[in-house]
Design a protein around this nucleic acid. Structure first.
Length: 120
DNA sequence: CCAATGACTAATC
DNA sequence: CGATTAGCCATTG
C-alpha cells in the first residue's frame, strides 16, 4: 500500500483514507463521506479532494457517486467510462449512467455493508 | 487575505 | 428529466 500520509492536505488525506473503507461492490456519496468526516456541508470540498486522489484506482475513488444515484464524474483513464467499467467489474450494475439498486449498493460508513434483506 | 474554482446537493422552473 | 440558482467548503493563485 502506498503512503497517503505523505501527500495532500490533512483534509484530503482524511478523504482518501475514508475511500478505503468502501467495500468492493458498493458505492457511497460525497455527502456520506463529508458526514463521516464530521463536515456534512463540505460536500464540494470532498468532491474536489476525491478528484485529486493520486492513487486512483488503487484507492477506490471510483466507488463514490452522486447523491441522486448517478455515476457522477471521474478524472482517471477514459473518464466516466473508466469509472463505470471499474464499478461493473466489481459487481455494481450501471444503467443509463445510474447505479442499479442504488439504495442497496450505498455504503453509509455506519455499520457493515450488510445487504440486510428486509429485516423483520 | 481575497477571488475563483470544483468528480456536489437541494430546490425551482 | 434537463437547465438554473443558490448554498457550502477546502484549496489554490
Amino acid at each position: 500500500m502506498k503512503k497517503i500520509e505523505e501527500y495532500g492536505t490533512p483534509f484530503q488525506r482524511e478523504v482518501w483514507e475514508a475511500l478505503r473503507w468502501i467495500p468492493q461492490g458498493f458505492v457511497t456519496t460525497y455527502g456520506a463521506i463529508a458526514q463521516y468526516l464530521g463536515r456534512p456541508r463540505a460536500v464540494r470540498a470532498v468532491g474536489t479532494a476525491v478528484g485529486r486522489n493520486p492513487y486512483a484506482p488503487e484507492v477506490p475513488c471510483h466507488r463514490v457517486v452522486r447523491a441522486d444515484g448517478k455515476v457522477g464524474n471521474y478524472s482517471g483513464g477514459e473518464g466516466v467510462a473508466t469509472k463505470i467499467a471499474l464499478l461493473e467489474k466489481e459487481g455494481v450494475e450501471i444503467r443509463e449512467g445510474r447505479v442499479v439498486d442504488f439504495a442497496k449498493r450505498l455504503y453509509r460508513f455506519d455499520d457493515q455493508q450488510v445487504t440486510r434483506s428486509e429485516g423483520s
